[in-house]
Structures are given as structure tokens and as C-alpha cells.
């Protein structure tokens, strides 16, 4: 009984395999359907819904959302100085974070790619990858503990007559730069590793000093990698509200305003409209980045 059942089972499996083999389009559909369906419906669908929400209105009197198309939210964002100031501050911070990360990432990436032995290099790659994927909140929290008045930073800096930045917008910049540093190190490392040594030798043979070689050969060749890294440092800074709420000491960023409006206030339409700011900034950034060929370095 079971024997025939297994045989029938197997025959069915074979027929199915043959049928699939003959219809590659069906195979493709079966492979692509679930992931594409899930991402399009769950993710793109959600984004579209968010956009639609941005055109609705929150009525503070009745305390709920009125589904009547209006541009009020966008007008409010453009005209009210709070929204403008916070947006400018967030974008400027994202830019400052990106610059700081690029400057810090270069020496370690250079050491990894062109100086370190094979063994050291592998250890360093793991050392940089580990904090990239893990312990986000713990690291922010650790920085908060370090930055608090009379905490680690103040104690360590006291002998040389300095103080830590406390909880402030400077701290937010510092912690963001710390958090996203691995995202910048890895692409620059990969970019530097790809430069053939002969190019650097040629530059030296032609009489260029180390600094000239760096400026005229290494920097232009790694620029796409820097831009690839900057996509992450920029986007992650724009979309974060947890870090500012822990270390910025009340200074607000785009994320904080969006989070407050969707959570405490319940003004989803305004939150949705304001969330369009980072989306638009990122889209412009991605379009500019694509023109430099940075996408090949992602």
C-alpha cells in the first residue's frame, strides 16, 4: 500500500519536474512570485499608502484623520520655521557625519588594503564587520553613558582641562559618525584593494611624491567607493530618531518630529508629509550618486 503510494508520489514529482522544465516562464513565475509579491505589496504598497496619507488632514477637534485631499501638510512643512530648521539641521548633520566618516575611514581602510599582512587584514575585516551589524542601540546607550555629565568622557578629559560635549547636537554628530563608520570603511577598503599596485608605481616612477600620488591617483579612483559608503551614512542619519533622543539632549531631527507626530500626537498625515523630506533628499542623493558610477561599488 505505502509502496504504491510512494511510487505514485514519485511519478507525480517526475511529471511536475518535466512540466516545469518545459516551461521556464512558469518556473520563473514560481520563483519570483513570492519575493516580488511580498516586497511589492508589503513594502511598495506601504510606501504608496504613506504618500496618500500625506494628502489627508488631521482634525485636532475631533481627534481623527479626515480623508479629504489637501496640500495643507506640505504647506505647513514649507512655511513653518520649526520644520524648515529641523530639516536643514538634519541634512547638514548627515553631511557632516559623512565627511567625518570619510576622513576617519581612509587611513584604516588604506592600512587594511595596502599595508597589513593577509592575516591581519582578515582579522581587521571581521573587527569592522562585527559592529556594522550588531548592537546598534547598545552602542548609542553606551555613548549616552559616556557623554553624561561627570561620566567617562568628562573624567578622562578633566586632566587635560577639557570637558565632553555633554548631551547636545555636537554629540549627535559624534555618535552618528561613530555608528556609521564601518559602513564607510568597508567600501573604501574594497575600492583601495582594487587599485593595481602598478598604477602607484607608475606614478612614483614619473616623479610624483606620495602626497601627489594620493591626490591625483588614489583619491579619484576611490571616489565611487566613498560615495557608495556615503549613501549609507547619509540615509542612516536621515532616518534615525533613537540616537538623537538618547544623546542629542532635546535637539530635534527629522525622525523625532515624524515619530512624535505618528505616536504621541496621532497626526499621521503630517508625519507622512514630513517623512517625504528624507525620501526626496535620498532620491536626489541616489540620482547624483548614480551619475558618478558609485552603484558598482555598493
Amino acid at each position: 500500500m505505502t509502496g504504491t503510494a510512494t511510487a505514485a508520489h514519485r511519478a507525480f514529482g517526475r511529471r511536475l519536474a518535466t512540466a516545469l522544465y518545459r516551461r521556464p516562464r512558469l518556473q520563473l513565475g514560481l520563483l519570483l512570485g513570492p519575493p516580488l509579491g511580498a516586497l511589492v505589496i508589503a513594502y511598495l504598497g506601504a510606501l504608496v499608502l504613506l504618500l496618500i496619507n500625506a494628502f489627508w488632514r488631521y482634525d485636532a477637534f475631533i481627534g481623527r484623520v479626515v480623508t479629504q485631499p489637501t496640500l495643507d501638510n506640505f504647506v505647513q512643512i514649507v512655511t513653518a520655521s520649526v520644520f524648515r530648521d529641523v530639516a536643514v539641521r538634519t541634512v547638514l548633520t548627515a553631511g557632516a557625519v559623512t565627511i567625518a566618516d570619510a576622513v576617519i575611514a581612509f587611513p584604516i581602510a588604506y592600512y587594511m588594503a595596502r599595508v597589513a599582512s593577509h592575516r591581519t587584514r582578515n582579522i581587521l575585516v571581521v573587527a569592522v564587520v562585527l559592529p556594522l551589524w550588531s548592537g546598534y542601540l547598545v552602542k548609542v546607550y553606551a555613548w549616552r553613558v559616556m557623554l553624561l555629565n561627570g561620566g567617562f568622557l568628562d573624567s578622562v578629559l578633566a586632566p587635560i582641562g577639557l570637558r565632553g560635549p555633554g548631551l547636545s547636537d555636537v554629540s549627535a554628530w559624534l555618535v552618528f559618525s561613530y555608528l556609521w563608520l564601518p559602513y564607510m570603511i568597508l567600501p573604501i577598503y574594497a575600492g583601495l584593494e582594487r587599485i593595481p599596485g602598478s598604477l602607484l608605481e607608475a606614478s612614483a616612477d614619473l616623479g610624483a611624491r606620495a602626497s601627489t600620488t594620493f591626490r591625483r591617483v588614489i583619491l579619484p579612483l576611490t571616489l565611487p567607493a566613498v560615495i557608495a559608503g556615503s549613501i549609507f551614512t547619509f540615509s542612516l542619519t536621515l532616518g534615525d530618531y533613537v540616537t538623537p533622543s538618547l544623546v542629542a539632549g532635546g535637539t530635534q531631527f527629522i525622525g523625532n518630529i515624524v515619530f512624535e507626530n505618528i505616536g504621541v500626537v496621532g497626526n499621521t498625515p503630517l508625519a507622512a508629509a514630513y517623512a517625504c523630506v528624507p525620501i526626496v533628499v535620498m532620491l536626489i542623493y541616489l540620482l547624483l550618486a548614480r551619475r558618478t558610477g558609485a552603484f558598482e561599488s555598493l
Binding site: Y43, L47, I262, P278
Partner: peptide, 25 residues
């Protein structure tokens, strides 16, 4: 397809979060 797979992690976190929250609601 590759772009679509990367998008949820490339877009700012607050955007992904509020979009999904709105959709669930």
C-alpha cells in the same frame, strides 16, 4: 529586483517604519 530587495534597508529607517505602521493600521 536587486534594487527592490535593497530598498527597505537603503531608505531611512523612519520611512520604512512609518510606512509599514500606516499600512498595518
Amino acid at each position: 529586483v536587486s534594487f527592490l530587495v535593497i530598498l527597505p534597508i537603503a531608505l531611512p529607517g523612519i520611512v520604512t517604519g512609518i510606512a509599514l505602521a500606516t499600512a498595518f493600521k
